[in-house]
Amino acid sequence: MSARHPIIAVTGSSGAGTSTISRTFGHIFRREGIRAARVEGDAFHRYSRAEMRQLIAEAEQIGQRGPSHFGPDANLFAELEALFSEYGAQGSGRSRHYLHEDDEAARHGREPGTFSDWLALPADSELLFYEGLHGGVVTDQVDLAQHVDLLIGVVPTINLEWIQKVMRDTQERGYSVESVQDTILRRMDDYVHTIVPQFSRTHINFQRVPIVDTSNPFVAKDVPLPNETLVVISFRNPAGVNFPELLAMLQGSWMTRPNTLVVPGSELELSLQIILIPRIKALLERRKMAL
């Protein structure tokens, strides 16, 4: 953690909705005039799309499941921790982009499923904002969570997570349902041992819970709408949280435990702003004092 160069990380698995949360942070940064250096978790994948497919095919030929983007073997955890460490100490570092789509790749003169060049982060940033799979990962070799000043978990219930992934990968990326199912199965060990433990290290978790039938996520025709979900907001340390004020400001909210607030899904963006803006401002005030 760093007073002069704070780091905010939003972490959650593929299809969990971290991109939606990231857009909300973008609105906050623009409205509040905050200069954020943005880092995408995909930038720290170890392999290109073609390389991953080759590794998976080779593993399946000998009766094994190949690597997954959830686990340490397919990611540059040491390099990501080095970035967090350097940014916390000096406000600098390097990142790149994973080029998902044809248009994005063409702008960089690359093939889709590859990476852009490594480039330095903006020199005048006030904070680093990470969004991806591994913002709070801890292994025998790395401890990313120790560097993060505000760690946010985005955790839909598992069937809702799978519905969101199936919808995105079939409709936006052209995969079949069967290939998405295979990816989910291949990732399960890494999901349990690498992704899930992060949510015990987060400062705040936002968990979306559907209130419609999601029993079979692989035949769902659409993602539950915001008004068809609830959001469970859990604070690791509730000290200093003004729950009566939050209950008054978030219509239809209630508490289930001393550290847990439940809000209607339609109130998610408002709850993000109400809860996170004061915390972001506190980090920047601490930065100002340190400088």
Rank of each mutant, 00 (worst) to 15 (best):
G113I: 05
H97E: 13
L83F: 06
A82D: 13
G135D: 04
V137Y: 00
A105T: 11
G109Q: 12
R94L: 10
S85L: 11
E86R: 15
G135V: 02
P112V: 00
L99K: 02
A120Y: 14
Q141H: 15
G136K: 04
D124N: 12
R96C: 02
P122Q: 00
V138R: 11
T139D: 03
A82K: 14
Y87A: 06
A145W: 05
Y130K: 02
L144Y: 06
R107I: 07
A145P: 03
F129M: 13
A106P: 07
L83R: 04
A105Q: 11
F129S: 08
R107D: 11
A123T: 14
G113K: 06
D124I: 06
L119P: 00
D143L: 01
F115L: 05
T114W: 02
S95R: 07
H100E: 06
L127K: 02
S85P: 01
G91Q: 09
L99R: 01
E86C: 13
H100R: 13
S95I: 08
Q90C: 13
L144S: 04
D102R: 14
G88D: 01
E86L: 14
G88P: 00
R94H: 13
R96P: 00
R94P: 01
P122G: 01
H108S: 10
W118K: 06
H100I: 07
L144K: 06
R94I: 07
P122Y: 01
S116N: 13
A89W: 01
D102P: 09
G136D: 05
E131N: 12
D140K: 11
G113N: 04
D143R: 02
F84G: 03
A82P: 08
V138K: 08
R107K: 15
A82Y: 10
L119Q: 14
L99E: 05
L99I: 04
Y98H: 13
V137H: 00
A123R: 13
A145Q: 11
E104R: 07
A145I: 08
G135T: 06
R96D: 00
Q141N: 13
E126P: 10
Y87Q: 03
R110W: 03
H134L: 10
G113E: 06
E104Y: 01
L144T: 05
H97D: 09
F129L: 14
L99V: 06
D103P: 04
Q141L: 08
Q90R: 12
G135Q: 06
L133R: 08
D117M: 05
E86M: 13
S85A: 15
Q141S: 15
D124T: 12
F84Y: 14
A105I: 10
A145D: 11
E101G: 10
S116I: 10
G135W: 05
Y130M: 03
L133V: 09
A120W: 12
A145L: 07
G136A: 10
L119T: 15
L83I: 05
D143W: 00
A106Q: 14
G113P: 03
L121T: 14
A120H: 08
Q141C: 09
L133I: 12
G93S: 12
Q90F: 15
S92L: 12
A82H: 11
R110D: 03
Y130T: 00
V142W: 01
A82F: 05
V138I: 14
D140T: 13
H108P: 03
A120I: 12
W118R: 02
D143I: 00
L121C: 12
H100V: 07
R94M: 10
